[in-house]
Protein backbone atom coordinates (compact mmCIF):
# COMPACT_ATOMS: atom_id res chain seq x y z
CA UNK A 1 0.00 0.00 0.00
CA UNK A 2 2.90 2.26 0.76
CA UNK A 3 4.21 1.60 -2.72
CA UNK A 4 0.91 2.57 -4.30
CA UNK A 5 0.80 5.82 -2.35
CA UNK A 6 4.40 6.57 -3.27
CA UNK A 7 3.83 5.91 -6.97
CA UNK A 8 0.69 8.08 -6.94
CA UNK A 9 2.36 11.00 -5.21
CA UNK A 10 5.45 10.65 -7.37
CA UNK A 11 3.34 10.70 -10.56
CA UNK A 12 1.39 13.74 -9.37
CA UNK A 13 4.57 15.53 -8.31
CA UNK A 14 6.29 14.84 -11.62
CA UNK A 15 3.22 16.02 -13.57
CA UNK A 16 2.93 19.23 -11.54
CA UNK A 17 6.65 19.98 -11.76
CA UNK A 18 6.87 19.29 -15.48
CA UNK A 19 3.75 21.41 -16.13
CA UNK A 20 5.16 24.29 -14.07
CA UNK A 21 8.48 23.98 -15.90
CA UNK A 22 6.95 24.18 -19.36
CA UNK A 23 4.40 26.88 -18.52
CA UNK A 24 6.65 29.94 -19.04
CA UNK A 25 8.41 28.68 -22.20
CA UNK A 26 5.21 27.14 -23.57
CA UNK A 27 3.20 30.34 -23.16
CA UNK A 28 6.05 32.48 -24.52
CA UNK A 29 6.47 30.16 -27.49
CA UNK A 30 2.73 30.21 -28.20
CA UNK A 31 2.76 34.02 -28.16
CA UNK A 32 5.82 34.21 -30.41
CA UNK A 33 4.20 31.83 -32.89
CA UNK A 34 0.90 33.72 -32.83
CA UNK A 35 2.12 37.30 -32.91
CA UNK A 36 5.64 37.59 -34.30
CA UNK A 37 7.43 36.83 -37.52
CA UNK A 38 11.01 35.71 -37.05
CA UNK A 39 13.63 33.80 -38.99
CA UNK A 40 13.50 30.07 -38.31
CA UNK A 41 9.88 30.23 -37.18
CA UNK A 42 8.91 27.33 -39.45
CA UNK A 43 11.76 25.21 -38.10
CA UNK A 44 10.70 25.83 -34.52
CA UNK A 45 7.08 25.14 -35.43
CA UNK A 46 8.09 21.77 -36.85
CA UNK A 47 10.33 20.95 -33.90
CA UNK A 48 7.54 21.71 -31.47
CA UNK A 49 5.09 19.56 -33.40
CA UNK A 50 7.53 16.66 -33.70
CA UNK A 51 6.78 14.92 -30.36
CA UNK A 52 3.11 14.89 -31.36
CA UNK A 53 3.70 12.92 -34.53
CA UNK A 54 6.69 10.66 -33.99
CA UNK A 55 6.29 7.67 -31.65
CA UNK A 56 6.92 8.60 -27.98
CA UNK A 57 9.52 5.85 -27.80
CA UNK A 58 11.44 7.54 -30.63
CA UNK A 59 11.35 10.85 -28.75
CA UNK A 60 12.58 8.92 -25.72
CA UNK A 61 15.49 7.55 -27.72
CA UNK A 62 16.44 11.05 -28.89
CA UNK A 63 16.30 12.28 -25.30
CA UNK A 64 18.37 9.32 -24.14
CA UNK A 65 21.07 10.18 -26.67
CA UNK A 66 20.94 13.90 -25.80
CA UNK A 67 20.93 13.51 -22.01
CA UNK A 68 23.04 10.32 -21.79
CA UNK A 69 26.55 10.36 -20.30
CA UNK A 70 28.07 11.02 -23.67
CA UNK A 71 25.27 13.18 -25.06
CA UNK A 72 25.85 16.94 -25.40
CA UNK A 73 23.22 17.91 -22.83
CA UNK A 74 24.12 15.04 -20.53
CA UNK A 75 27.77 16.17 -20.46
CA UNK A 76 26.72 19.73 -19.79
CA UNK A 77 24.55 18.72 -16.83
CA UNK A 78 27.15 16.35 -15.43
CA UNK A 79 30.26 18.51 -15.87
CA UNK A 80 28.83 21.99 -15.25
CA UNK A 81 26.02 21.33 -12.80
CA UNK A 82 27.11 17.96 -11.46
CA UNK A 83 23.68 16.47 -12.09
CA UNK A 84 22.96 13.12 -13.63
CA UNK A 85 19.70 12.97 -15.58
CA UNK A 86 19.09 9.62 -17.24
CA UNK A 87 17.61 6.77 -15.18
CA UNK A 88 16.76 9.13 -12.33
CA UNK A 89 13.49 10.85 -11.39
CA UNK A 90 14.77 13.94 -13.24
CA UNK A 91 14.64 11.98 -16.50
CA UNK A 92 10.94 11.36 -15.85
CA UNK A 93 10.39 15.11 -15.55
CA UNK A 94 12.40 15.79 -18.71
CA UNK A 95 10.47 13.17 -20.68
CA UNK A 96 7.03 14.33 -19.55
CA UNK A 97 7.97 17.99 -20.08
CA UNK A 98 9.18 17.41 -23.62
CA UNK A 99 6.13 15.32 -24.44
CA UNK A 100 3.63 17.84 -23.09
CA UNK A 101 5.27 21.09 -24.22
CA UNK A 102 3.87 20.83 -27.79
CA UNK A 103 0.33 20.49 -26.46
CA UNK A 104 0.69 23.60 -24.33
CA UNK A 105 2.51 25.65 -26.99
CA UNK A 106 -0.09 24.81 -29.65
CA UNK A 107 -3.00 25.60 -27.35
CA UNK A 108 -1.30 28.86 -26.30
CA UNK A 109 -0.76 29.82 -29.91
CA UNK A 110 -4.43 29.37 -30.75
CA UNK A 111 -5.44 31.18 -27.56
CA UNK A 112 -3.29 34.22 -28.41
CA UNK A 113 -4.41 34.21 -32.03
CA UNK A 114 -7.97 34.58 -30.80
CA UNK A 115 -7.17 37.75 -28.85
CA UNK A 116 -8.19 40.63 -31.15
CA UNK A 117 -5.06 42.50 -32.32
CA UNK A 118 -7.25 45.61 -32.25
CA UNK A 119 -7.39 45.50 -28.46
CA UNK A 120 -3.63 45.13 -28.15
CA UNK A 121 -3.14 48.03 -30.57
CA UNK A 122 -5.50 50.32 -28.70
CA UNK A 123 -3.75 49.38 -25.44
CA UNK A 124 -0.48 50.57 -26.95
CA UNK A 125 -1.98 53.92 -27.97
CA UNK A 126 -3.23 54.32 -24.39
CA UNK A 127 0.35 54.38 -23.19
CA UNK A 128 1.07 50.76 -22.30
CA UNK A 129 4.36 49.19 -23.36
CA UNK A 130 4.55 45.70 -24.87
CA UNK A 131 5.01 43.94 -21.48
CA UNK A 132 2.07 45.68 -19.86
CA UNK A 133 -0.10 44.92 -22.90
CA UNK A 134 0.92 41.27 -22.63
CA UNK A 135 0.19 40.90 -18.93
CA UNK A 136 -2.89 43.12 -18.64
CA UNK A 137 -4.58 42.52 -22.00
CA UNK A 138 -3.32 39.49 -23.97
CA UNK A 139 -2.74 37.05 -21.12
CA UNK A 140 -6.10 37.54 -19.34
CA UNK A 141 -7.98 37.40 -22.65
CA UNK A 142 -6.19 34.18 -23.64
CA UNK A 143 -6.72 32.57 -20.20
CA UNK A 144 -9.42 30.09 -21.30
CA UNK A 145 -7.31 28.60 -24.05
CA UNK A 146 -4.27 28.69 -21.79
CA UNK A 147 -6.01 26.82 -18.97
CA UNK A 148 -7.28 24.23 -21.41
CA UNK A 149 -3.77 23.83 -22.80
CA UNK A 150 -2.28 23.57 -19.33
CA UNK A 151 -4.74 20.85 -18.37
CA UNK A 152 -3.95 18.98 -21.57
CA UNK A 153 -0.24 19.21 -20.83
CA UNK A 154 -0.82 18.07 -17.24
CA UNK A 155 -2.91 15.08 -18.37
CA UNK A 156 -0.23 14.16 -20.85
CA UNK A 157 2.41 14.33 -18.11
CA UNK A 158 0.28 12.09 -15.87
CA UNK A 159 0.00 9.37 -18.49
CA UNK A 160 3.28 9.57 -20.41
CA UNK A 161 4.83 6.16 -21.01
CA UNK A 162 6.97 5.68 -24.12
CA UNK A 163 9.48 8.48 -23.74
CA UNK A 164 9.70 8.03 -19.97
CA UNK A 165 10.50 4.33 -20.15
CA UNK A 166 13.36 5.04 -22.58
CA UNK A 167 15.15 7.77 -20.60
CA UNK A 168 14.20 6.80 -17.06
CA UNK A 169 13.87 3.05 -17.22
CA UNK A 170 11.72 1.19 -14.70
CA UNK A 171 13.44 1.56 -11.39
CA UNK A 172 11.06 0.72 -8.54
CA UNK A 173 10.91 3.53 -5.99
CA UNK A 174 12.89 5.82 -8.28
CA UNK A 175 11.31 6.27 -11.72
CA UNK A 176 8.10 4.29 -11.67
CA UNK A 177 4.99 6.33 -12.41
CA UNK A 178 1.40 5.09 -12.58
CA UNK A 179 1.55 4.17 -16.26
CA UNK A 180 4.95 2.56 -15.93
CA UNK A 181 3.68 0.77 -12.84
CA UNK A 182 0.66 -0.69 -14.64
CA UNK A 183 2.91 -2.14 -17.33
CA UNK A 184 5.42 -3.35 -14.76
CA UNK A 185 2.84 -5.15 -12.60
CA UNK A 186 1.22 -6.83 -15.61
CA UNK A 187 4.63 -8.02 -16.74
CA UNK A 188 5.16 -9.58 -13.33
CA UNK A 189 1.70 -11.17 -13.47
CA UNK A 190 0.35 -8.96 -10.63
CA UNK A 191 -2.93 -8.10 -12.34
CA UNK A 192 -4.63 -7.06 -9.09
CA UNK A 193 -1.93 -4.48 -8.34
CA UNK A 194 -2.18 -3.23 -11.94
CA UNK A 195 -5.93 -2.73 -11.48
CA UNK A 196 -5.37 -0.64 -8.36
CA UNK A 197 -3.01 1.65 -10.29
CA UNK A 198 -5.50 1.77 -13.17
CA UNK A 199 -8.27 2.85 -10.80
CA UNK A 200 -6.06 5.60 -9.40
CA UNK A 201 -5.20 6.81 -12.93
CA UNK A 202 -8.85 7.05 -13.83
CA UNK A 203 -9.64 8.87 -10.58
CA UNK A 204 -6.85 11.38 -11.19
CA UNK A 205 -8.07 12.02 -14.74
CA UNK A 206 -11.60 12.61 -13.44
CA UNK A 207 -10.26 14.95 -10.81
CA UNK A 208 -8.23 16.97 -13.30
CA UNK A 209 -11.17 17.38 -15.67
CA UNK A 210 -13.55 18.32 -12.85
CA UNK A 211 -11.14 20.95 -11.56
CA UNK A 212 -10.64 22.45 -15.01
CA UNK A 213 -14.39 22.52 -15.70
CA UNK A 214 -14.94 24.24 -12.39
CA UNK A 215 -12.22 26.79 -13.17
CA UNK A 216 -13.71 27.55 -16.57
CA UNK A 217 -17.21 27.95 -15.21
CA UNK A 218 -16.06 30.10 -12.30
CA UNK A 219 -14.58 32.64 -14.72
CA UNK A 220 -17.73 33.08 -16.76
CA UNK A 221 -20.56 34.54 -14.70
Amino acid sequence: MDDVLHVTLFTLGVAVLSTLLILPPGVALGWLLARRKWPGKTVVETLVALPLVIPPVATGLILLKLFGRRGPLGQFFENVLGVEIVFTWKAVVVATAVMSLPLLARAARVAFEEVPVRLENVARTLGAGPWRVFFVVSLPLARRGLSAGTLLAFARALGEFGATVMVAGMIPGETITLSLGIYHEVQLGHDAAAFVLLAISVALAFGAITVSEWMLRRKTP
Binding site: R118, L119, V122, A123, T125, L126, G127, A128, R132, P140
Partner: peptide
Protein backbone atom coordinates in the same frame (compact mmCIF):
# COMPACT_ATOMS: atom_id res chain seq x y z
CA UNK B 1 2.59 53.95 -30.10
CA UNK B 2 2.74 54.18 -26.29
CA UNK B 3 5.05 57.20 -26.45
CA UNK B 4 3.12 59.22 -29.05
CA UNK B 5 0.29 60.55 -26.88
CA UNK B 6 -2.12 59.90 -29.74
CA UNK B 7 -5.54 58.66 -28.64
CA UNK B 8 -7.39 56.21 -30.88
CA UNK B 9 -11.06 55.29 -30.83
CA UNK B 10 -11.96 52.60 -33.38
CA UNK B 11 -15.37 51.76 -34.79
CA UNK B 12 -16.42 49.32 -32.07
CA UNK B 13 -14.69 51.15 -29.24
CA UNK B 14 -12.34 48.23 -28.52
CA UNK B 15 -13.02 48.25 -24.78
CA UNK B 16 -11.16 45.58 -22.83
CA UNK B 17 -13.90 43.00 -22.20
CA UNK B 18 -12.28 41.58 -19.07
CA UNK B 19 -12.09 44.94 -17.28
CA UNK B 20 -14.95 47.02 -15.94
CA UNK B 21 -15.59 50.50 -17.33
CA UNK B 22 -13.58 51.89 -14.40
CA UNK B 23 -10.82 49.36 -15.06
CA UNK B 24 -10.69 50.44 -18.69
CA UNK B 25 -10.26 54.06 -17.62
CA UNK B 26 -7.61 53.21 -15.01
CA UNK B 27 -5.64 51.30 -17.64
CA UNK B 28 -5.36 54.49 -19.69
CA UNK B 29 -4.65 56.72 -16.70
CA UNK B 30 -1.27 55.11 -16.16
Amino acid sequence: PERRCVGLVPQDGALFPHLSVGGNLRFAER
